[in-house]
Design a protein around this nucleic acid. Structure first.
Lengths: 316, 316
DNA sequence: CCACCTCCTGCTCATCTGAGCGGTCTGCGC
DNA sequence: GCGCAGACCGCTCAGATGAGCAGGAGGTGG
């Protein structure tokens, strides 16, 4: 502050001191000796240089990841992991590919030999599966049934298989739809050998990767696949978000619905029991859904893109 | 280094730690507690973040002065003062005006009540004189005679008067040309009352502001005003620069010339005795002259512009 | 399976650093 | 001339920090 008005000579002296301190890594005592100042004077010069903006410290991003935004997001929401991909908002497909790539790196990094991975059905998770490098040899568990996609994308099973192949551990996979027409069918299916084997593994799962959908047209494959009556009834219940088949209000409260009875997959309690759940989120409309997911406490990891992260921070 | 390859999670952790440390000003111990790390781990994280370029520290310039370049110049040449004006290279006139402004600020800052100022004849010094704010009440001494300018600019005497007016102390000024046709006339002039009074003050001068010229056409008013025979003979003697009438080789060695005998003004020994001599330099062709001046040890202050400073640093 | 190597971790101790305190200098009003 | 307020300066001391070292985990080749 004062430095600003103190004339060119002291300005330059400040710059010199600050350069020695920050750029050359000298101690304040050394600098004091070099410039014949007391170390206190040096300290005050550096202090006022920082206060006046003479020194600017930036946390940079080299490459795909906006580390500073990631860090702020992680702090702000108390997450175990947050990774923001610094990509221009191009097509959903490119976005998904980039997020998948980064999520794959993240998963590879945090997966240890004692983990059990859970994998949900989601296109974003599929994008991740394709990009996975070799993992530790861990079991991989399918968390939900599959929703048949209009564009015939990789099915849930293939996602889990891809992840299991990268890991080299046992794969608990099953061939079943995510939703069925009635609760009785769902109960029957759940007792089916492959399904039961996978669902029995859920309590052992330590890390999971899931997608998130907004309960609105075009923002959730589950929503789009649901009957109009279900769509309406859930909307009336205040459902805002859907995380791997778990329905949440805008505040992040899990909602038990009639539809839940007719679904094959993980429920809120089981998800809460998983130590680390990473959600891959993209597309600005889904911001409220992601916020709900983060508030719910069910997920504590997030992989997303720049504008999404900024919107999340701004809205909180 | 390692952080670059260590995956998104540790990258983000680094960013978070670094943010807390540099931006939030927390101690490493606090950060260690917050993230459940040892303080050593925190230290290493910060260290590697700096090494890998995750944190960038820049010394900024707010306003006219490029403080970092100034600091580097000052260090590099061991100067008492160096101020680089961050201005695009526009006309010599604009440049002169900006440098004069900054030099005025510098002089105002470094002038104390016990100083005696010396003022040389130069257009750049004239530009400074016009911009001077109020100074301490100190004596002001004219260092050299005047060269009549083709464009009839402010004369040397007016420069000294302007400075003296800003100071409010006594002005030791004289009306005499810088060069005369023969040595005898010079000797006579030097004994003249006003001239002698001013020259007698020279040993008392503690701070001086001078210009610098390159001994080449159009790069020194003294050169341009000299007879062709003088121009040639000085060139043959290896004269590269002219600082307030003191001639220097490219290495900064003072050169005693026949022309010196016919000049009214300060000589090399007297200039060396002045504690702080600030030279105002601009115009890229003059870079070798400025380098000679700085090497000579006669001057230990510099006010110049960005490209000039960069050229000086590059050439050294 | 073991020996070896390298990387990573956290310790000690000497040094550095920050917060707060009192002394001094300076400008200003009376 | 005198007294005061505010800025500036350098001290002390407790706590923070860095350099170097030893122990241990994990990977590799014999």
């Amino acid at each position: 502050m004062a430095k600003q008005l103190a004339g060119p000579a002291s300005l330059v002296l400040s710059a010199q001191v600050v350069r020695r301190y920050y750029l050359d890594g000298r101690s304040k005592v050394e600098i004091a000796e070099e410039f014949r100042l007391s170390r206190f004077k040096v300290a005050r010069l550096i202090e006022s240089a920082r206060a006046s903006g003479l020194v600017r410290i930036e946390i940079g991003h080299r490459g795909l990841i906006d580390v500073d935004l990631s860090a702020r997001l992680q702090s702000r929401f108390g997450l175990a992991h947050a990774v923001v991909v610094d990509t221009r908002d191009d097509s959903a497909e490119t976005l998904r590919k980039h997020l998948g790539q980064v999520a794959a790196e993240l998963l590879a990094e945090v997966t240890g030999p004692d983990d059990v991975l859970g994998v949900a059905w989601a296109r974003s998770v599929g994008a991740m599966a394709g990009a996975l490098p070799r993992l530790a040899a861990v079991p991989v568990v399918q968390l939900t049934g599959a929703v048949s996609l209009p564009d015939g994308d990789a099915s849930s099973i293939d996602v889990v298989r891809d992840v299991a192949r990268a890991a080299g551990g046992p794969a608990y996979v099953f061939y079943a739809p995510f939703t069925v027409p009635d609760a009785a069918t769902a109960r029957t299916l759940r007792r089916q050998r492959e399904v039961a084997l996978a669902l029995d593994q859920l309590p052992r799962v330590t890390k999971a990767v899931v997608g998130v959908g907004l309960w609105a047209p075009g923002q959730s494959t589950l929503h789009d696949a649901a009957a109009e009556s279900d769509r309406r009834s859930l909307r009336r219940l205040g459902v805002c978000a859907e995380v791997s088949g778990v329905f949440l209000t805008a505040d992040g409260e899990p909602v038990r619905t009639a539809l839940s009875e007719r679904m094959i997959g993980i429920d809120a309690e089981q998800m809460r029991a998983i130590a680390e759940v990473v959600v891959i989120a993209y597309g600005l409309p889904k911001v409220p859904a992601a916020r709900a997911a983060l508030r719910s406490g069910l997920v504590n990891g997030l992989v997303t893109h720049t504008s999404f992260a900024e919107a999340l921070l701004a809205s909180a």
